[in-house]
Structures are given as C-alpha cells and as structure tokens.
Design a binder for these strands. Structure first.
Length: 815
DNA sequence: ATAGGGTTAG
C-alpha cells in the first residue's frame, strides 16, 4: 500500500515536470501532442500498452482529452481512447467536460448501452459536475430515450454532493421526462421540489410540463398550463404545435383547427412535419374537409407536398364519395410534377362505381402522361376486377391490351368506349394470372403465361412461384419441374417457396426418394424445408402402416443436414405405436432428445397413449413425472388419457377425482373429458352418476357434441334405461345432430329387452325411414330380424309392420 | 406473398 502511494507520488512529480516542459513552449507542442494521440488511436492495430502511449500518458490534461475526443471521427475510437484515459491514474482523472464530450459523442451516434454505462459510472467516479454540465448530460441521455437513467442520475449526483442542481438542471430533467410519454406523478413531484427550493418556473419549465399532460390525455391540466404560458407571453410555435397535435390526437379536430388559425393571427406557422401529421390525423378522424383546408394552408406556407399526403387526402375523399374533388387533386399533383401511383389510382377506382368517372380518370391522364402511367391505371382496373371476383372481365381486358400491341390502331374498349393504346406489363399479367389461379382456372392461367412470352413480356418470380404452387396443388408435378427449369433458364433463381411447393407435392405423394432428392437441392440453395411438408410425408407413410420407412426418412433428413422438427418426430412416434412398436417408439423418443430436440406435451401424450394401449401402466404414469421434471405441465389431453385408462381398467373413482383436480389446476375439462367419464360411469353401471356428470358439463357451459350424446345414449341403454336415452335422442334431433345408425340398434335392443314394444317400434320405424336398416352381413342384422319377428307377432305393432313391408321399406330378403 | 405441424372420447 505504502509502496503504491510512493509510486503514485513519483509519477505525479514526473507529470508536473513534463507539464512544465510542454507548457513552457508554445501551444504548437500541445497541438502536436493532439496529433500524436490521434495517430496512435487511428493506427491499426491499436496496442493499449505500447511504449509510445506509456510515454505520452503523463501529458494528459482534461482539455487535451476533450480535443482528442472531438477530433476522433468514429465513436468507437473515441470510446477506446476515453477508456484508456480512464485508466491513467494518477496522471489523469476525467472531469465533467471530458465525460460530457464522451456522452455527446455516444448520444449522437446512438450508442444507448454505452451511454447508459457511462451514466452509471459518473456518480461513482467522485467527479463533480457544474449545474450546466449536469443539464447537458441529462439532455444527452434524453436524446436516446434514457429518461429513467437521467432521473436516477439527477438524484444520485445530488445525494453524493457531486452537483447542486439549479433551475436549468430541473428544466433539462423535465424536458427529458416529457420526451418518452412521461409520468405525470414523477413530473409533478419534481415541480414541487423546484418550488420548495425557491426556483421560478419559466417557459422551459412549463413547456415539458404541458407536453406530459398532453401525452397523458390530461386535458384540463394541459390547458391550464397553456393559459399560464399565454398570460406570460411564453407561447411559441413549438408550444402551439404541441397542443394542436394533442387536440388532433384526442379527436378534437375543430379545436385543433381553431388553434392553427389563432397561430396565424399571431404570425406563427407550423413546420412541415406538423402539417403532415395533422393532415393524416384529421383524415383518420374522418374530417377530410379540415384536412383539405389545412393542406391548402400548407401549400400557402410554401411547403411542397409529397405523394403520401395526396394519397391520404384522395383516400379520404374517395371514402366520402367526393370523386370530383379527388380528381381535381390529381390535376393539382400533376402541376407539382407528381405522378399518381397504383395506390392512388386504386383508391379512385374503388370509389367510382360509374364508368363515366373511370373514363374521366383515363382522360385526365392519357393526354399528357407516358405509357407507364396509363399501364398503371389499367393495372389498377385489372386489380379492381380481380378483387370483386370478375376474373373473366379482367382476362378479357388483358386480352384487349395484348391485341393493342399487335394492331397498331389500338383496340376499342367497349366498356370504357376509348381506345386502348398501351400494352400490358409484367404486373398486368401477374394480377390476372393470380386472379385466375384463385378462381381455380389453372389452365387458363397457364395459357396466359404462354401469351405473355409470345409478346416478349418477362415473367417475374411471383408468376413462376404461383403457377408452380398451383400445379403442385393439382398434383401436376412434371409441369412444375418444367417451369422450374424454365425459370432457371430465364435467370430467375427459385426461392424457398418454389422448392417447398414441389417438396410438398412430393411429400403428399409419399415419394420418399423424390423428397430426399429435393432436400439435397434445397440444401445446396440454403432453403429450409417446411415442417408441415416433412410431417405430412411422415404421417402419410404412418397412415399406411409404413412407420419404419418414415423413420428412415427422418434419418435421411438428418443426413442431408436438416434436423427434423419435434412435430415430425412425434408423428413418426405415433406411427410406430400404431404398428405396436412401442419400444421402437421409446427409442426414437430418446434419440430425438439426445439430438437436442425438446419433446413437448404432445410427444408425451402420444407415448402415454401407446404405453396404456400396451398395458404398460407403470411406465405410462412414470412419463407423467418426466413431463414435470422437464418443466412442462400435463395438458387436458394428458389428463383425458389418464381418465380414459382408469375408467377402462375399473378405477372410475380415481378418474372422477382427477376431474375435480383439473379445474383446480386451471386445466378446464373439455367435452372429451366429460364424454370419457359418462362412458366410464355407464360401464360401471352408474347411470345416475353419468347423468350428473352430464349436467355438470352443461352447467359449466361446455356444450355436448354428437359423440357425447351418443356416448350417453349408448351408456343409458346399456344400463337398461332406454326411455331416458330417447329423451337425449330427441334433444340431439332438436340440435340437428345426426346420430350414427348403431344408436338406433342399441335403442331398439334396449326397448325390446325392456319388453316395451311400442317404443321399440317407434325407433325401428325411424331407423328404417333413415335408411339405417342393417345389411345381411352386418352384425346387427339378426337384431333387426328378431325385431321384425316380434313386431309381427304382437297386436300393437303387427299391422304397422305390415304397412312398412308393403311400402317396400323393409328389404325383401328379410322376409 | 410465403409458418402453423403431431395427441384424447362414442
């Protein structure tokens, strides 16, 4: 410790000596020092502890550091130098001036994080700041939205005694707080502090205060501040603009406009940006009238409008069906040399329902404008047709445009009654081809594609992609490949969309080899295959019992450098389970985990179901623990699987207990949960409990679907309660749900066992009328035959049965 | 314009 202090003292002595040496000579020496530092810090590579720097360190002064910082052109170099200088104790300590020089550079170059760090360091450096310096620093912070840091810094500097803030500091702080929305409570607290310290409020205090009130929609407070400023004569253009913009934001268009007029009375004006924001805001509020007036004022003030203002005004006028005014704006913009673009023309067309207006628009433009603009308008018309479903009209108009190219006189457009003198461009074809594809006219789109090549119009990537995509959806793979070759010949590189369209088609076809070839191609282009396509291939294979091939495909994907998504893996696991390869499924599961893919609840659900089906209950329930250990939580499906398994293995009460647990865990039971339990309770001969679960379901607002109804009806019949069951059948009918045929058989049998022949016949008749009479090979066929026999033998039903036979409703072969 | 998938009930 002692040694270090002595060493420092020695260094200090040396420094004083050097300073003396340099200051005794003229300041050309310090200029050359400046140059030395600049050249060292701009030299590449920079070596922090070079002998050169060590030699120069003692010469550092705050003034020199400031000069170097402002001379270094890049913020990075400046910051490197700044950090280096920070470590040169005891020769050098930063002052508020060097800190601020750095802060200003970081603020200008938007280095938010570095500035934040700097602001954090300053109070810990024990460097004192003048009030002016603190104000400056706060403004640097505010410039990058660091108002919270500014607020914190302000207090810390004061508490540590490093600065005694004055009214200027407070004004800077208020300004900072108002910049990012602002917190009314915080702002009012600072004002109270100021007053307590005896500082007067001035224009620079109240302007940010008003801003904060405006941002917080505190209408009355904002106005009262405004009035105070008005009395003192502090209202300037900025204050006005602030209030006008706020009024506009609050939807008070008239008040905003009044204020603008008041400004004019005081010979004050808005700036260009404020004009633009206001005009957009007014139109948004549906006040195109005031927006147009303001627009005129803007032109009077000498500002040159840009196309976006015309766009928004014309859009507003079109919405108000003021087509004439919109058209006159078109003439006006032409005087400014601004061409209407597609957006504007489209807006005009959408508001013009009658053809005369469209003709006017065409006239307005065709006279002077070049072909480019005319094509733009025609494209807008094509767009309009396609958008309201008149694809055929669009196609016809485009054909006329194509003809105009070949016949020099121009084709007569019967709709517009004018001559078409312009040939279509790529966009024209794009619009119509797209429209044709959307309306399912692929072949017409393809023929248009050939037409465009006839007139040497170049197709773009969008046209190729859309055609290929549609061909793939129609399973026309060969033609897709042909287009792919064609686009490559045309020098248009396929995108991931192109490749994925074809890949998807191959997957749909279960063409494993083709899909792998495509993956190779995609790998070479850096195109990622879409998850849904790979998964589709896996699923298609699994649905056909080819789970092992699906697994091989996934292995191939890995070999091609694409790690399949967990969804694709899950599909394969499901496929393995379907062919009873549960152990293989478990292996695949472990494999994907080891490859770094994370299984999710669905993956677990698939496995749990597989294990249950294989009667491996303990393993299934162990997986439940694994879900939790992985930080996942069981889903409703997981619980439903458990409930189903417990119901079917005789633990209905355990299942019921889980039902109550689910609501508590914010895993609300769904219609499947209830259906499973209704089925389970009926299997356990507890029809009353089943009905009570049913009622709970309805009370919870969960509406039963046809499967739920069928489960209850079936269940009640099994419990010999066909009369109760029929009530639910009627409810289903009321809800226009159609039960499957077996429901009628089940009801019929139940009534027959119950010896309720009348009701049995009623159901039987319904079944026959619905065409649900079982085929001879159907296992329910004997039941139907037995019923007919019983009906024929009984007085209550025999004649009606006879009628059915005579009407031919009971097949002949039954008799 | 172009993500999106795999699991549960009668």
């Amino acid at each position: 410790m002692m040694m270090m202090i002595m060493k420092d003292k020695l260094k200090l002595k040396l420094k004083l000596k050097l300073c003396y040496l340099f200051t005794t000579h003229s300041h050309t020496h310090s200029l050359s020092l400046l140059d030395s530092f600049i050249s060292i810090f701009t030299k590449q590579p920079f070596i922090p502890n070079s002998p050169e720097l060590t030699r120069l360190a003692p010469t550092l002064t705050p003034h020199l550091v400031e000069s170097v910082l402002t001379r270094l052109r890049s913020w990075k170099l400046a910051h490197t130098f700044f950090l280096w200088a920070s470590t040169q104790h005891p020769y050098f300590h930063h002052t508020c001036y060097t800190y601020n020089a750095m802060a200003s550079i970081l603020s200008r170059s938007r280095q938010t994080n570095l500035l934040k760090m700097l602001a954090f360091d300053i109070p810990n450096s024990n460097c004192s700041f003048t009030p002016g310096a603190l104000g400056f620093l706060i403004r640097c912070l505010a410039g990058l939205g660091l108002d919270q840091q500014a607020n914190h810094l302000f207090d810390e500097m004061r508490v540590k005694g490093l600065c005694v803030p004055n009214d200027y500091c407070y004004n800077c702080l208020l300004e900072a707080l108002s910049k990012n929305g602002g917190d009314v409570g915080l702002m009012e607290m600072r004002l109270k502090e100021m007053r307590g310290l005896g500082f007067e409020f001035d224009k620079f205090t109240l302007t940010p205060v008003m801003q904060v009130y405006c941002n917080a929609r505190r209408f009355d407070e904002a106005l009262s501040v405004y009035n105070t400023m008005q009395e003192k004569g502090w209202v300037d253009e900025r204050v006005y603009a602030m209030l006008v913009l706020s009024f506009s934001k609050w939807g008070e268009v008239d008040k905003a406009f009044e204020l603008v007029e008041r400004m004019e009375g005081q010979r004050m004006g808005l700036n260009e940006k404020t004009f633009c924001v206001l005009i957009h805001g007014f139109v948004k509020e549906g006040r195109v009238d005031k927006a147009c007036q303001l627009f005129d004022k803007m032109l009077m003030a000498g500002f040159v409008p840009d196309i976006s203002l015309y766009d928004v005004l014309i859009g507003g006028l079109c919405r108000n069906k003021e087509g004439d005014k919109a058209l006159s704006l078109i003439s006006e913009m032409k005087e400014f040399g601004i061409q209407p673009d597609v957006g504007i023309v489209t807006k005009l067309l959408s508001s013009f329902s009658n053809r005369s207006m469209i003709v006017k628009l065409l006239e307005e433009i065709t006279e002077e404008e070049d072909d480019k603009t005319v094509v733009l308008i025609y494209n807008a018309i094509l767009n309009g047709y396609v958008d309201d479903g008149s694809t055929d009209e669009a196609y016809r108009l485009l054909q006329m445009m194509i003809q105009s190219k070949s016949s020099s006189g121009g084709e007569m457009n019967s709709f517009f009654c004018i001559k078409i003198l312009v040939s279509p461009n790529t966009t024209s074809f794009n619009i119509v081809i797209d429209g044709l594809l959307k309306s399912g006219q692929l072949d017409l789109a393809l023929s248009l594609f050939h037409d465009m090549q006839q007139i040497h119009c170049k197709p773009n990537i969008l046209i190729f992609n859309n055609l290929i995509n549609d061909l793939c959806h129609s399973n026309r793979l060969e033609e897709s490949f042909e287009l792919l070759r064609e686009m490559e010949k045309a020098g248009i590189g396929p995108t991931h969309f192109t490749h994925n369209s074809i890949y998807g088609c191959l997957c749909k076809r279960k063409d494993v080899l083709g899909a792998i070839d495509m993956l190779k191609l995609m790998r070479s282009c850096g195109h990622e295959p879409w998850i849904k396509h790979s998964t589709l291939l896996v699923k298609e294979l699994c649905d056909h019992g080819r789970a092992l091939e699906a697994c091989n495909f996934l292995i191939n994907m890995v070999q091609e450098g694409f790690l399949p998504h967990v969804v694709s893996y899950s599909a394969a696991i499901g496929g393995l389970i379907k062919i009873q390869e549960v152990d293989q499924a478990l292996n695949l599961f472990r494999d994907l985990c080891s490859r770094g893919r994370c299984p999710d609840v669905v993956t677990f659900n698939i496995l749990i179901r597989g294990l249950f089906k294989a009667n491996r209950f303990t393993e299934a329930e162990n997986l439940l623990d694994e879900i939790v250990m992985m930080g996942l939580s069981p889903s409703v499906v997981t619980y439903n699987l458990l409930i189903d398994n417990w119901c079917k293995s005789g633990y209905v009460d355990k299942a019921m207990a889980l039902l109550s647990k689910m609501s508590g865990e914010d895993r609300d039971p769904n219609v499947i949960t209830y259906t499973t339990l209704v089925d389970g309770l009926c299997r356990a001969e507890r029809p009353d409990d089943a009905v009570s679960v049913w009622n709970t379901m309805e009370n919870k607002g969960c509406s039963p679907n046809r499967i739920a109804f069928m489960a209850l009806i079936h269940g009640l019949c099994k419990c010999s309660r066909p009369t109760a069951a029929v009530r639910y059948l009627r409810e289903m009918e009321q809800k226009e749900m159609k039960p499957d045929s077996f429901i009628y058989v089940v009801l019929l049998s139940a009534f027959l066992s119950d010896l309720n022949l009348t009701s049995a016949f009623e159901i039987f008749k319904e079944m026959v009328d619905l065409g649900f009479f079982p085929e001879p090979r159907d296992k329910n066929y004997p039941i139907a035959i037995d019923a007919i026999l019983k009906f024929s033998k009984d007085d209550r039903t025999s004649s009606a049965t006879q009628v059915l036979i005579e009407e031919g409703k009971i097949p002949r072969h039954c008799l």
